[in-house]
Simulated assay, not measured.
Amino acid sequence: MAGEKSVKLHNKSDKPDNIVLKEHEIVSKCEEIQDQLPGCFKGFFRYLKGNVLSKTRVAYLGDILHFCQYLIEETDLTEAEKPADIKKEDFNKIKAADVNEFLDHCRKYKVMQNGQEVLFQNGNRTLARKKSSLSVLFKELYREGRMEENITEGFDPIRVPKASEREIKALQDDEVMIMLDAVESGDHLTPKERQYWNKTKKRDKAILLLFLTYGLRLFELQQLNVTSFNFSRGEFKIYRKRDKETIMPLNRSVTETLTDYIENERRPDEELDELHKDALFLSLQGKRMTERQIRELVKKYTSIGLSTSRKAGYSPHKLRATAATSLIGRGNSIYDVQALMDHEQVTTTQLYAAHKMNIKRDLVRDMEWELERKEGTERNETE
């Protein structure tokens, strides 16, 4: 965690230290970007802080910093040499057409990083977020009287598929079983992967089961602590978006798997640095696993379940979708699943209810043209 060693924590809240430090890390990132932006944005910064989730704030501020750099490097709208020096008067020169050109530029552009040219290509979902970031900025600047007109109505629309139009990607039950068999036996792993698997198989199995059983978000699982679990009461606590705390019940499978990992594989506390002693899932270096490490682990095992390449494996969010579709497929109430998954709107959960996992497979199974042709030919030959 960036900067974690330089922070002396005096935590008097009910939140675990790692949750407080994670929040501090995100806020510090926001402040770091804000320091690079024009001073006339201070009111906008206050607006974001009070109305937008911290992770969204980081994304919005990053988009706006990119826009300011674009103004300096690609336009003649400002004479500033760095984003912080762009003046209020410069922003009043900006028209909707300039923003539309920026969004078109963002579809594909090149940046020099460490002496190497890096090509960035963005889809409509990313472009829509960048448009949203700039819309919020310009509306707030207009509301504060820092801009003479509201230019946002002239922004080009960006077509993003509705959730109901997107294909829901999730593992099917037989693929889940193949994946869990692989983490149990080490089958389908490369020789190098098996070396790591011998040291982490109990941990890996616990991670997969928590995703599959509760549909946890990646950051929710990554921040779990040993003290998050009360095995005598059969429950554990997670920290969700918008500062929500949720108590989850433990089932037998998860309890046995976690207990096995903690007692028989997890490194003893006395071998760990103070910062990581309470972390549930540890890397081989004895530190709390990063989101990236967990994401790569999930991609590896899901690729085995899907019988595809490691690169084509699923993300943790697809295991969240797997949990939702499996729960609904077992006849559970859509409202109960909504509560478990922490969906703000039941319409989100309904997308999983409408997604019939095997419907396409069943349909094409009844349309085996070539097999029917061969069977017909063989029948004719025997008659």
Rank of each mutant, 00 (worst) to 15 (best):
Glu235Cys: 14
Leu212Thr: 09
Leu275His: 12
Leu275Met: 12
Lys130His: 08
Lys287Cys: 03
Val99Ile: 15
Ile151Gln: 04
His317Cys: 05
Leu141Ala: 06
Gly234Trp: 05
His66Pro: 00
Trp197Gly: 02
Thr382Val: 11
Ile86Val: 07
Glu381Cys: 00
Asp366Ser: 13
Ala97Lys: 15
Tyr261Val: 13
Leu71Asp: 04
Gly234Phe: 08
Glu175Cys: 11
Met367Ser: 12
Leu103Ala: 13
Asp366Thr: 14
Thr255Leu: 13
Pro157Ser: 12
Asp366Ala: 11
Phe138Ile: 02
Val298Thr: 04
Thr347Asp: 15
Gln222Pro: 00
Gly115Met: 09
Glu265Trp: 15
Ser232Trp: 12
Glu383Val: 07
Asn225Tyr: 03
Glu144Ser: 13
Thr227Gln: 10
Arg330Ala: 05
Gln345Trp: 10
Asp14Met: 14
Thr322Cys: 05
Ala321Gly: 05
Asn11Pro: 08
Arg361Ile: 05
Asp63Ala: 01
Val99Leu: 09
Lys162Pro: 00
Tyr261Cys: 10
Ile94Pro: 11
Leu280Asp: 07
Arg320Ala: 02
Gly62Lys: 14
Glu101Gly: 10
Gly3Val: 01
Gly215Glu: 04
Ser132Ile: 03
Gly305Arg: 06
Lys241Thr: 06
Asn18Phe: 05
Leu71Val: 03
Lys87Ile: 01
Pro83Glu: 06
Asn92Lys: 04
Pro16Asn: 01
Ala84Met: 02
Ser185Met: 05
